[in-house]
Each structure stands twice: as structure tokens, then as C-alpha cells.
């Protein structure tokens, strides 16, 4: 039998720090931070991981599933080692993001919501990231923003993402 699911002591310390931001009887407020920290450690959010977060914060599991499935940056299925999300909304599109997205698809040989056969890269289409002035804009693994992504910069990026 497998040992019960838990998170590293480092992750738990981060969650505790998030919980401390809110009133003592309002631990639920830290659920978004806790899910983000858990996802960073595990790569994605399995039911087991979400159940652990629910138990840790004293929330009903369904309340945690609701949050995890509502916000688009939580991954409820495994992704490639790197998840690249590109914004194709109108301001970005006017500044070349449609071509950038096509270039990414062609270079990687995959479409949106697909992963390269070697499991390295998952490609996603995103909505406004609030950085339109730096278009085309991409986010790597939810946290690293990549700005003004020319085809040359994409070539370099794909080389770097081993």
C-alpha cells in the first residue's frame, strides 16, 4: 500500500505562510495559494493532491475541486515538462501573436492542448495576461512571462527547454 499523499516540508511551510495572511477562521482564503504551491511541487493537481489540500485547510474536498477547476492555470491532468501558454487575444494578435502561435504549432508539430510525443512541451492558448504592450506574450509553466517572442527567440527557447 502506498504511503498517504503529502507535500514536502518546504511546500507546507509556504502554505502556512499564506494561511497567516488571513484571519485565523478564514483558512479557505489560502486555498488558491495552497493549490499553486502543491501544483509547483507535483507538476499537476491529482484528486489525491486536492484532497490533501482540503484536509490541510479543513475544507470539504468538493470546495477545493471547485476552485481548482474554475481557475484556468490549475492543471487537473498531467502536462508536458514545460507548459507554454501563448496569448492570442486581439491586442496580441494585432502585434503578431497569431503568427507566433502558428510558428510554435509548426515547429513543435502539435496543436493547442497537445503535448509533444517526448512529453517535453504542452502548448496552450491563453487569454489576456495583462502584458499586451510586450506582445507576443507567453507564459512558461504558469510563472515565467516571456515577452516580445519573435521566431528567433522561440527557436532559442525551444533549444533551452531540455
Amino acid at each position: 500500500m502506498n504511503a498517504p499523499m503529502t507535500l514536502s516540508s518546504e511546500s507546507l511551510a509556504k502554505i502556512d505562510k499564506a494561511v497567516a495572511k488571513y484571519p485565523p477562521d478564514r483558512k479557505d482564503s489560502a486555498v488558491m495559494a495552497a493549490l499553486t504551491i502543491a501544483q509547483d511541487e507535483k507538476g499537476w493537481l491529482s484528486t489525491e493532491t486536492m484532497d490533501f489540500v482540503a484536509q490541510y485547510l479543513g475544507m470539504p474536498p468538493v470546495a477545493v475541486y471547485e476552485v481548482a477547476s474554475f481557475y484556468t492555470m490549475y492543471d487537473l491532468k498531467p502536462t508536458g515538462k514545460y507548459k507554454l501558454t501563448i496569448c492570442t487575444n486581439l491586442p496580441c494578435a494585432l502585434q503578431g501573436a497569431t503568427h507566433t502561435a502558428e510558428y510554435l504549432k509548426k515547429t513543435l508539430g502539435i496543436g493547442f492542448n497537445e503535448t509533444t510525443p517526448d512529453g517535453r512541451i504542452t502548448l496552450k492558448e491563453g487569454e489576456c495576461m495583462g502584458a499586451c504592450g510586450d506582445a507576443p506574450v507567453m507564459i512558461q509553466n504558469n510563472k515565467k512571462m516571456l515577452c516580445a517572442m519573435s521566431n528567433e527567440k522561440i527557436d532559442q527557447l525551444l533549444k533551452d527547454l531540455k
Partner: peptide, 10 residues
């Protein structure tokens, strides 16, 4: 004052 982050919802 504390910072709270969203995670993808317009």
C-alpha cells in the same frame, strides 16, 4: 497589507 494572487480568471 497582504498580497493575494489569482490563477487565471478574467
Amino acid at each position: 497589507l497582504h498580497a493575494h494572487h489569482g490563477f487565471g480568471a478574467y
